[in-house]
């Protein structure tokens, strides 16, 4: 506790009085710790900690979810995906409400088992998420998946979206707290671009409040002394090079693709699709899925929140029409969504 008090004191002393500093986190678990520890109440008034695109469920395009609903309605298909995905609202409803044959899984290995025990059906794994969930999907592909298992890849790349945000002057990011789990895969070196090209301190942090405070402190120190570089206060878990083996198999099966982000739009090279070599495993190709135009959710500002341009409390629907039980926008659905976290904290 004394140590924490000292860090907070130091943070106060490092923030210059005459300017506003905005530090973004890009991880739902970081935002959870920040909100539930009341961390913002301890920060200087001119230091903002903004939740960024830390929720893969929130950015998953509506088109993919509607395609998943439609697949689950086919008699010979079992759609499997992570729990939160079942509840995400679309213009056609959610998978849970409108889908037919679907199952919740907690790991890609369950998708393998479901496919194996239902040989007369086609199992489609709607695989979403950032690098943390891409790695295990690549792992089952490397192991060899059953013939009747197909991948609907809606994976997204964290460094790419962060670079988009950095270039957006309206957000004005002064520093990044880099996501702990993603960094374990991609390595802290993956963030070097931010210090080298944009002069923005980026520090990898873990999930305890104290560790996050350390991360914030380091960002502020770098800003003050001008010695900007990638930092890492989560060294026990994150190595500079990351998990090389995981990176290898991810690169073997997936390649970067131009994709949509829900509420944000088209971002070149920011997603992952299966390489052409594995087209027979790619649900998009096997089932000839088509792009469906995204419908705006009236009143919902999830896209703006994900980009760090507004806090959840700025949304007119927040805590009124939109609650975790009756989510109108994707950020209220997932436990990693900023709206869901702010609702509970």
């Amino acid at each position: 506790m004394e140590k924490i008090k000292d860090i907070i004191k130091l943070i106060h002393s490092l923030v210059p009085e005459n300017r506003r500093i905005r530090i973004m986190n890009v991880c739902g678990s970081h935002e959870h710790t920040i909100a539930f520890s009341g961390m913002r109440s301890l920060m200087p008034n001119n230091l903002e900690i903004i939740p960024g695109p830390g929720c893969p469920v929130c950015v998953c395009p509506e088109s993919d979810i509607i395609n998943a609903i439609n697949l689950s309605r086919k008699d010979d298909v079992i759609l499997v995906t992570y729990g939160d995905m079942l509840r995400v609202p679309t213009q056609k409803g959610s998978i849970r409400a409108e889908g037919k044959n679907f199952r919740m899984i907690t790991s890609p290995f369950e998708a393998m088992n479901i496919a194996k025990s239902n040989p007369d059906k086609k199992t489609v794994f709607f695989s979403i998420g950032f690098e943390t969930t891409t790695a295990p999907t690549a792992a089952i592909l490397e192991m060899g998946i059953p013939e009747n298992l197909f991948i609907l890849s809606s994976h997204r790349l964290t460094p790419t979206i962060m670079e988009i945000l950095v270039k957006d002057a309206e957000i004005g990011i002064d520093g990044f707290i880099a996501p702990g789990h993603v960094s374990a895969i991609v390595g802290s070196n993956a963030w070097n671009v931010f210090s080298e090209k944009y002069g923005i301190p980026t520090v990898v942090a873990g999930f305890e409040a104290e560790n996050l405070l350390f991360g914030i402190m380091e960002i502020l120190q770098q800003l003050k002394n001008g010695n900007v570089q990638t930092g890492n206060v989560y060294k026990g878990v994150v190595r500079p090079e990351g998990n090389v083996q995981a990176q290898k198999i991810m690169a073997k099966f997936f390649e970067a693709a131009d994709v949509n982000w829900r509420g944000i739009g088209h971002i070149p090279g920011s997603g992952l699709e299966l390489r052409a070599k594995y087209a027979d495993k790619d649900a998009r190709k096997v089932f000839r899925l088509e792009e469906i135009k995204e419908a705006k959710i009236p009143g919902c500002i999830c896209g703006t929140i994900i980009l760090g341009k507004a806090y959840p409390s700025a949304c007119k629907l927040f805590k009124k029409a939109c609650t975790p039980k009756t989510p109108k926008g994707p950020c209220m659905v997932s436990m990693e969504g900023a709206c869901n976290i702010w609702y509970k904290a």
Partner: peptide, 10 residues
Amino acid sequence: KLRTKIGGER
């Protein structure tokens, strides 16, 4: 008001 472990307020 909850005084959190790190001294924050919620």
